[in-house]
Amino acid sequence: MEYDEAGYVVVGGGSAGSVVAALLSGDPAGTVVLVEDGAVTGPGTMGVPSA
């Protein structure tokens, strides 16, 4: 599947951005792109918050 356009672009995949993207994606006729720029912690790794 390939798209040249998006109906909505949500910048930021935090709590609010994820909710907004989920709500917008409820329309099967629309397209949503969620853009997130997280920190790079190294190849194949991710940061885990301490308890």
Rank of each mutant, 00 (worst) to 15 (best):
M1V: 11
M1G: 10
M1N: 09
E2V: 04
E2P: 12
Y3C: 09
Y3H: 14
D4Q: 14
E5M: 04
E5D: 10
A6W: 13
A6I: 07
A6N: 12
G7D: 15
G7T: 15
Y8V: 08
V9A: 09
V9N: 02
V10M: 14
V10N: 01
V10F: 07
V11S: 09
G12E: 10
G12A: 04
G13E: 00
G14H: 03
G14D: 03
S15H: 11
S15V: 14
S15Y: 12
S15K: 04
S15C: 04
A16Y: 03
A16V: 07
G17M: 15
G17N: 00
G17Y: 04
S18L: 03
S18H: 11
S18T: 13
S18F: 04
S18G: 15
V19D: 06
V19I: 07
V19N: 02
V20P: 02
V20L: 01
V20A: 15
V20W: 04
A21C: 11
A21G: 00
A21S: 11
A21Q: 00
A22P: 00
A22W: 13
A22H: 14
L23W: 12
L23A: 12
L24F: 14
L24V: 00
L24E: 02
L24W: 14
S25L: 07
S25G: 05
S25V: 06
G26Y: 04
G26D: 07
G26M: 06
G26K: 09
G26R: 10
G26T: 05
D27P: 01
D27V: 04
D27G: 03
D27H: 03
D27Y: 07
P28Y: 05
P28A: 06
A29K: 15
A29F: 01
A29L: 00
A29H: 12
A29Y: 00
G30Y: 10
G30H: 12
G30C: 11
G30W: 08
T31H: 02
T31I: 08
V32K: 01
V32I: 06
V32F: 05
V32L: 06
V33F: 03
V33I: 11
V33D: 01
V33M: 01
L34S: 05
L34R: 02
L34D: 02
V35E: 06
V35Y: 05
V35Q: 08
V35K: 10
E36S: 00
E36V: 03
E36R: 09
D37T: 09
D37F: 13
D37L: 12
D37M: 14
D37A: 08
D37N: 09
G38F: 07
G38I: 04
A39Y: 09
A39M: 13
A39F: 08
A39P: 08
A39T: 03
V40W: 15
V40M: 11
V40F: 15
V40L: 10
V40Q: 08
T41V: 12
T41H: 07
G42A: 00
G42M: 03
G42Y: 13
P43Y: 15
P43F: 05
G44V: 09
G44M: 10
G44C: 11
G44A: 03
T45E: 14
T45I: 13
M46H: 13
M46D: 05
M46C: 11
M46I: 12
M46V: 11
G47V: 07
G47E: 11
G47C: 08
V48Q: 04
P49Y: 05
P49L: 10
P49Q: 08
P49E: 06
S50K: 14
S50F: 06
S50Y: 11
